[in-house]
Design a protein around this nucleic acid. Structure first.
Length: 867
RNA sequence: GCGAAAGUGGCGGAAUUGGCAGACGCACCAGACUUAGGAUCUGGCGGGUAAAACCGUGGGGGUUCGAGUCCCCCCUUUCGCACCA
């Protein structure tokens, strides 16, 4: 049971029994609540405690955890995320760095509006209340944030700079307005970016299929940086490979060729409408174009619309295909629907050979990739092959495989034959070329003749940022009847989000129902203008917030470039930590934004963060924590029952931080016990008066502790530098404590010099400080230390002192463990082998056999091979 | 379908470069604490055996004096992408 539930154990300061034995027992019990609230109060009274230094000569270290959405309360995922960052920040402080460790609130977004609808609380009030609550939770958990730099994105002091950036985007042609098909979530009652659509559903409503709507929207030209965003990934060695791969796939670069096919008989049939008579296809395999036996169009292709305009039967069939695609997309299994299509009855001309091939519409062609039109080469593409089989279209072989075996070279391959390792046939002037060479030559040929060119396409699309919602940054644009789209002048920023707005999920943007907001004057002509009533996607807010931390109160610019330069340098945030769920969304937008700001001359780094760490999820009984499953572990409850240190430390101990963590209450009890053990040891052995810390003539018992201590320092330090397996370095500290308990007899008989005992305890506390700051501070004080633990130097590892004097060498016979011999640590091979051969068990095992080979791995093992 | 990660005791996990498999913790068992224990301390704890032998890192092969670790094939789970032309 926790001390919190035992009023007798702490409320009276632990002194209430007369009997000495009992009193000692009670005094040694660690009352986490008492100690933690005491220190939390002290820390609160010193706002400068965790402040980053300005004009520091120290080396900078910027450690950042992704800022939370103020949903109302922290969850265990937050605790884990921030415990990692906090341990790192504290470690870097102790290593003498000028650490920037800020926190803020990603506080625009839909949940605030939902709360307004369901609970009738204004979004601003709801949000600020949640922030206050979560900030209190963070303080109770003891996270070392520099609150003087707190960023709250829903306040005008921040979002005015979103608007400022938007104007800069507009000036540079990186923001534009266009009407297009957009993703619409009916539950959010707003448009979503492509990145916010998951399996055809809304990222916030996983079972709500996204609809397509034709709307006029603001877009940010992220595609301008597509190539750079892709190439930059190659240099992000400090990012998880998984994230880099996901971004590569998302950007989806594909090299190929555009080829124009003209509709045959276009004039006679008057068969072309607004979309023209040219079908441009995109192909990565132009080398197979002599094998193209049909053109396949996406059902939503503009030319299909034209053709269907005169053909009601075709129109009906095409609508059918569109409906199928939509259904499959909503079901999330586009790859699974059966391929089928419908002939348009028209033909197009292959510009390479003048051949007329039929034009079809097929349900496996999507409009939003490439040009929405392909040439179908059944012999050399799996999908085209299936399709051609089904509709009995011609299958024409134009590539023969090449092999090292000359006999095989000219054999007909099984179809479809899709590799590049081949040579062209039936391809006119290009016969005999190898595929890759042919792709190059044939692209050049198309360009010469003016019917095509080599090109690169991307899956990445421009970022649609308009949201038909209230609780977001107003887009600073005006519509004037005379001057058209006019930006709000910089001097008029911010465009303030009005309060007291009626919020509903129907009828378009809530701001559209606020007449005094919508009415404006055109800055050009002074005439009446209408204000944009959509707001920005909240991912705009989080795309640059970490720059604002460096200069959070600047009211003349988003931040001062010189200050940002100090913290970002050329490589960005030193360590960024967050969940992998942002691998695409936030992390691609902020990479874009960083390049945009670089090109504005505000910063010099290309990437926002040099190193990225993605921590695993916190789950319970193998399932994601959720209210519906009733398996949510509340941080407040954990803090109340076990203390903040225990909750934090357990979240680091239970699994390596990059893996999912299965939360077990019994596990955190183990950590609570451990912290109690540490406390008890120091309470029993702290002798603040024993100032002598020189390691004078240590007894063997003391020497053993010293060895273990230095080994522990190494293990903990190495993990901070390298792989961040805090679970193992916490284990190492536990081992050290176990060794100390094992030495209690020696301590009692004074076999451990008291000066050394103090030194050990100091080191133990220092090692614990990044993981359990409350306990560490309490013990630090108990040891009589005056210097702040926060800036106390991290213990130095001494390889000499860590060295074992004797080591145990396993002896294997034919690879099986048979015995062990103890030898001096510096023993040479001959000595170790001699000892091994003299060992009784070894002798018995090799009796009557011949030793064929003796293997000695220095310091590790002996293996004797016998026959 | 493509790509990535993972699979080790009853459980979470350790073994960083091919070198004693199971560190540390949980759970469990036993003992101590002149009473109690949801406190604490000590010890035990992969299977197997009286003790050994022996068997054990998803399965099957291989390389090696030696494989959880390297290679080949297969199975399972999780995640990401997916008619990408």
């Amino acid at each position: 049971m926790t001390s919190a539930d035992q009023p007798d154990a702490g409320a009276n300061g632990g002194r209430f029994h007369d009997r000495t034995s009992d009193r000692r027992e009670i005094d040694e019990r660690y009352d986490a609540q008492r100690v933690e609230t005491k220190w939390a109060e002290r820390w609160q009274q010193d706002p400068a405690l965790y402040a980053a230094e300005t004009n520091s000569t120290k080396q900078k270290y910027y450690v950042l955890e992704m800022l939370p959405y103020p949903s109302g309360a922290l969850h265990m995922g937050h605790v884990r995320n921030y415990s990692i960052g906090d341990a790192l920040a504290r470690y870097m402080w102790m290593n003498g760095y000028n650490v920037l460790h800020p926190m803020g609130w990603d506080s625009f977004g839909l949940p605030a509006e939902n709360a307004a609808i369901s609970a009738n609380v204004p979004p601003r009030q709801w949000t600020l209340r949640n922030i206050a609550n979560m900030k209190a939770q963070m303080n109770r958990l003891g996270f070392a944030y520099d609150w003087s730099r707190e960023v709250t994105t829903c306040l005008p002091e921040y979002y005015r700079w979103n608007q400022w950036f938007f104007l800069k985007l507009w000036e540079r042609g990186l923001a534009y307005r266009k009407k297009s098909k957009v993703n619409w979530c009916p539950k959010c009652a707003t448009v979503l970016a492509n990145e916010q659509v998951v399996n055809g559903c809304c990222w916030r409503h996983e079972d709500t299929p996204v609809e397509q709507r034709e709307l006029e929207q603001w877009f940010v030209r992220t595609t301008k940086y597509a190539e750079e965003l892709l190439r930059g990934l190659d240099h992000l060695e400090g990012w998880p490979e998984k994230v880099r791969t996901m971004q590569r796939n998302w950007i989806g670069r594909s090299e190929g060729t555009l080829v124009d096919f003209k509709l045959a008989y276009a004039d006679e049939h008057k068969g072309f409408g607004p979309a023209g008579a040219t079908i441009t296809v995109f192909t990565t395999r132009v080398d197979t174009i002599f094998g193209a036996t049909s053109i396949q169009l996406a059902p939503e292709h503009p030319i299909v619309n034209d053709l269907a305009a005169q053909n009601t039967d075709l129109r009906a069939k095409v609508d059918q295909l569109i409906a199928e695609q939509r259904k499959a997309k909503e079901a999330g299994d586009i790859g699974e629907i059966e391929k089928h299509g419908v002939s348009t009855g028209r033909y197009a001309i292959n510009p390479y050979n003048g051949e007329r091939i039929p034009v079809w519409v097929a349900n496996y062609i999507v409009m939003d990739y490439g040009t929405g039109a392909i040439m179908s080469v059944p012999a050399h593409d799996e999908r085209d092959y299936d399709f051609a089989k089904k509709y009995k279209l011609e299958i024409r072989l134009v590539i023969l495989p090449v092999s090292n075996d000359p006999e095989e070279t000219m054999a007909e391959p099984p179809l479809p034959f899709t590799t590049h390792n081949g040579v062209l046939i039936n391809s006119g002037a290009f016969n005999g070329l190898m595929c890759d060479e042919a792709i190059k030559k044939m692209s050049e040929y198309a360009e010469q003749k003016g019917f095509g060119k080599a090109t690169v396409t991307y899956r990445l699309k421009d970022w649609g940022i308009s949201r038909q919602r209230y609780w977001g940054t107003p887009i600073p644009m005006l519509y004037c009847e005379k001057d058209g789209i006019v930006p709000v002048p910089e001097k008029d920023l911010p465009v303030i989000l009005p309060e007291n707005v009626e919020i509903t999920l129907t009828g378009g943007s809530p701001l559209g129902r606020v007449p005094e907001f919508g009415k404006a004057r055109c800055p050009k002509c002074g005439g009446p203008a209408r204000r944009e009533t959509d707001t920005m996607d909240t991912f705009v807010d989080s795309s640059w917030y970490f720059y604002r931390y460096t200069d959070a109160h600047n009211d003349r610019a988003p931040f001062d470039g010189k200050i940002a330069q100090y913290w970002f340098g050329d490589r960005g945030i030193d360590q960024y930590i967050g969940g992998v769920e942002h691998a695409i969304l936030h992390l691609i937008y902020s990479r874009f934004w960083t390049r945009f700001m670089r090109d504005l001359g505000m910063i010099t780094n290309d990437e926002p963060a040099e190193r990225l760490f993605t921590q695993g999820m916190v789950i319970k009984e193998g399932a994601k924590m959720s209210k519906s499953l009733g398996n949510v572990v509340s941080p407040d409850e954990m803090v109340a029952r076990y203390g903040a240190d225990a909750a934090r430390m357990y979240s680091l101990f239970a699994a390596p931080p990059d893996r999912d963590l299965d939360w077990q209450d019994s596990g955190i009890e183990g950590i609570q016990r451990f912290l109690g053990r540490v406390y008890r040891f120091v309470v029993r052995n702290a002798r603040p008066s024993s100032a002598a810390r020189s390691a004078d003539a240590l007894t063997p018992e003391a020497r053993a502790i010293q060895r273990k201590m230095h080994q522990t320092i190494k293990r903990v330090s190495d993990d901070f530098q390298g792989r961040w397996h805090f679970n193992t370095c916490i284990s190492a500290i536990m081992e050290l404590v176990n060794v100390l308990y094992g030495a209690e007899d020696a301590i009692v008989r004074k076999a451990i010099p008291s000066g050394f005992l103090v030194e050990v305890q100091r080191h133990l506390v220092l090692l614990l400080a990044p993981f359990a700051p409350y306990l560490a501070h309490e013990l630090w004080e108990m040891l009589g230390e005056k210097q702040s633990l926060l800036r106390a130097p991290w213990p130095k590892y001494d390889a000499e002192l860590a060295k074992e004097e004797e080591i145990e060498i396993p002896v294997q016979i034919n690879g099986k463990l048979r015995s062990r011999v103890t030898v001096p640590a510096d023993a040479d091979e001959a000595f170790v082998l001699e000892r091994a051969l003299a060992d009784e068990k070894v002798k018995a095992a090799i009796a009557g056999k011949q030793i064929v080979k003796k293997i000695y791995v220095p310091g590790k093992m002996v293996n004797l091979v016998v026959r």
